[in-house]
Design a binder for these strands. Structure first.
Lengths: 219, 219
DNA sequence: ATTGTATTCAATTGATTAATTGAATAGTTG
DNA sequence: CAACTATTCAATTAATCAATTGAATACAAT
């Protein structure tokens, strides 16, 4: 008959519902994809490399925790993050992981050494050069994600179309490419493709959300 | 031989390590307790109502995710949050839960109705009245937690000693009591005790961390 | 109506997980 | 050194979870 205990248990039980969503690598990946823009189950399935039924199941878990919501478009079900707060939360989570888990740093730097060709550019340098009109910024994500939100001044050329549109890149200016964020390799690929053409390109690790937050703090 | 897939899987696997820590109600409760100050395994065991062995096990999970660290003091092992970032993160998580999960609001308001006697005071009103020296602020948490950090100007009278020290409360001034935060009932108990004595007391739901963040944003 | 496509549902499997128990360790005190 | 205390370890159990499979919906286009 300890009602304080049952009360606390209930509250933490509920909180854990959101926690459980973050305990599966695949669900984290789904959340990250959705942070870039609304997507159908099938698109998420292709993006994460898991079966449609499996994704659907994960999405239901996420929906029960009110982290995502959906709208039906004909036979499609379009999922999106339930609120901007969820996307901000994911950013905080990534920061915490990055800071606390040495393993993540290791995995990341291991990659950077392997792809030494993709020279990095930091967010503040990029913003600076963008303001001076001194750099050409390329968004290589799928068009819909660019349309959902993008870094101000960025031009959209989805990675699959990059080879075709290389000629539309400026030859007298440095180029920077970005994609979904640090765990996405599209920008690195883009840099390789561009560099192979003899142009100078940098890789911006950050994505739209990191940029938005950076821009807000500055003002 | 899709190395991009394995790379992503590795990264999300690591992130999920932190996520897993948040998927158990009991671990969330441990983290909340530690956010108030360093504690031994036994103290955590009493505070959460679970067995020592079980707490120890959870603490190891938290330690593997680098969310907590420990120092040995004689035969005691004193655990604490690994970094202030962890405590900030918990605050963000609570906010998200509060915002997204209707159930939590329901459980909370159900309680407030039951304990209608504990009149609430909001953080901004309290801070205002504190600055004008217009209110007496009581910290009813255990002394060590008060010593770890407390709202500036608060006086420490741990809840168990409150009845004994009722005489040291001002009679010509309103009183506010606070404790660990919204999921802790000590401040509500305190208000009942004080009100029973004919003094006017309010309950502040927020804890030190909420106050610190509020104070920072204001400046 | 029929076919096709996107999604969900339900049942099954193997893998993890949380809590319990009792023993083991390690430091402290008499 | 013996007794004690705080903590961890290891083994067990029941419960929960993730992924797979195949069937069921539900809407759209022909």
């Amino acid at each position: 008959m300890n009602m304080e205990r049952t009360w606390k248990d209930q509250l933490y039980q509920e909180q854990a519902r959101i926690g459980k969503c973050l305990s599966s690598p695949k669900r984290l990946e789904i959340l990250d994809l959705l942070a870039q823009g609304a997507k159908s189950v099938e698109v998420l399935s292709r993006g994460t490399g898991m079966s449609v039924a499996n994704v659907s199941q994960h999405l239901q878990t996420l929906h029960e925790a009110r982290l995502v919501r959906y709208t039906k478009k004909g036979t499609f079900v379009i999922y999106e993050l339930a609120d901007a707060a969820v996307s901000n939360f994911m950013l905080t989570l990534h920061r915490l992981c990055e800071q606390q888990l040495v393993e993540i740093k290791r995995i990341r730097t291991e990659f950077t050494q392997h792809h030494a060709s993709a020279e990095p550019i930091s967010l503040d340098v990029l913003v600076d050069r963008l303001e001076r009109g001194d750099i050409f910024l390329l968004d290589v994500r799928p068009r819909e994600e660019y349309e959902t939100d993008h870094i101000a001044g960025a031009i959209s050329i989805p990675i699959e179309q990059l080879e075709k549109h290389l000629s539309s890149l400026p030859i007298n200016m440095d180029i920077a490419a970005y994609c979904r964020g640090p765990y996405c390799l599209m920008s690195a690929q883009a840099v390789e493709i561009i560099n192979a053409r003899g142009l100078k390109a940098f890789r911006l690790e950050e994505g739209v959300h990191e940029w938005r937050q950076f821009a807000e703090q500055r003002s």
